[in-house]
């Protein structure tokens, strides 16, 4: 698969946006501007970026509690993400959701969720809609290795397989569900191999290699659009920060392991490849870095200056009409 330089640079930009945004959110959390949970995606940027690179705006993504990267890659502006975590009315969920309930249906971001599993089923349901409506739209469920042990994984993959739904199941295997190692939680840690049990293709890729992810996703999306059913893609990756901001990150993994994975930073690796193999000038990357830094700075200012939601709206929209 060959990407032209414009596409390559756009993948780079998306990963940098996610990284800088997450770093900012971590700082804002430490400064007290964000309450509740804040699960960062640092280290896993290549997965969301590679998968979403081939999605259209009318394709649907259903994400997890660690979903900032998916939202950004699917097209939610960083200012709306940051404003949401700041609890402001300009956030993508009007301040109702925070980190774990990011909704932007206008760009196909159909939600992140605070419960592990349901988004796998919801993506399957979107696949059901797209098939019934006779469109070529596709749906994507992102989930971690923790989701694999959940019944929703089994039921969702089985339903998608028997009905040949246009759905991608993207497992971000970052080796830990909160702090429980996947090697403890599963006897068979080869997630991709489980696809055979449902009669669908399964593929494992280096989740820190954005082009490997993009290539696998492209093939799966093409199959889904053509009516040839679902695919399970296992992206092996790692989160280099703790499970959630404010949590200790010791005891369940070694510093050496974390450092090994930091050395495999997906953005640095991709930048090196762009410079060496694709003959992209360093200035092009530096310019993106500068633009993104400015964008995040502007987004924080926007969020900080945005209004709080009106308390009188606390019970709005529980029902479609009336109440």
């Amino acid at each position: 698969m060959a990407f032209d330089n414009e596409v390559l640079l756009s993948l780079y930009r998306t990963m940098v946006v996610i990284r800088r945004c997450e770093e900012q959110l971590a700082r804002s959390y430490q400064a007290g501007a964000i309450t509740g949970a804040c699960h960062t995606y640092i280290g896993q940027e290549a997965v969301a970026t590679g998968v979403c690179a081939h999605l259209r705006v009318d394709d649907a993504v259903f994400s997890t509690h660690r979903g900032h990267g998916h939202a950004l890659a699917k097209g939610v502006p960083s200012r709306e993400l940051i404003a949401e975590l700041f609890g402001r009315t300009t956030g993508c969920s009007d301040g109702r959701g925070g980190s774990m309930h990011l909704f932007a249906p206008d760009v196909g971001m159909m939600g992140t969720t605070g419960i592990v599993g349901p988004n796998i089923l919801q993506a399957t349901g979107a696949g059901y809609s797209f098939q019934l409506l006779e469109t070529d739209r596709v749906s994507v469920a992102f989930f971690g290795d923790g989701g694999v042990g959940n019944g929703a994984f089994h039921e969702g993959l089985n339903l998608a397989a028997i009905w040949q739904l246009p759905t991608l199941f993207v497992c971000e295997n970052n080796m830990y569900a909160t702090e429980v190692p996947f090697s403890y939680a599963a006897r068979n840690t080869d997630v991709a191999s489980r696809a055979a049990g449902y009669g669908m293709p399964g593929i494992a890729v280096d989740g820190n290699d954005v082009l490997a992810v993009a290539e696998a996703a492209q093939a799966a999306i093409s199959r889904a659009r053509a009516g040839d059913g679902p695919t399970l893609i296992e992206c092996r990756t790692y989160r280099t920060r703790g499970h959630a901001e404010g949590m200790q990150d010791g005891g369940y993994r070694t510093e050496e392991e974390v450092n090994d994975w930091k050395a495999r930073d997906p953005i640095k690796a991709f930048a090196a490849r762009l410079l060496e193999r694709d003959a992209i000038e360093p200035q092009a990357l530096e310019q993106i870095d500068r633009e993104v830094a400015g964008q995040i700075e502007e987004a924080v200012e926007f969020a900080t200056n945005s209004p709080w939601p009106d308390p009188d709206t606390v019970t709005d929209h529980i029902f479609s009409e009336g109440g």
Binding site: P118, L121, G125, A126, G127, S129, L132, G156, N158
Partner: peptide, 21 residues
């Protein structure tokens, strides 16, 4: 007709309703 997996097909219905059916 569904397999016997109420959680699965109810969860599926959420996603279907979110996308226009």
């Amino acid at each position: 007709d569904t397999p016997i997996c109420e959680r699965g097909f109810v969860g599926l219905c959420a996603g279907a309703a979110m996308t226009g059916t």
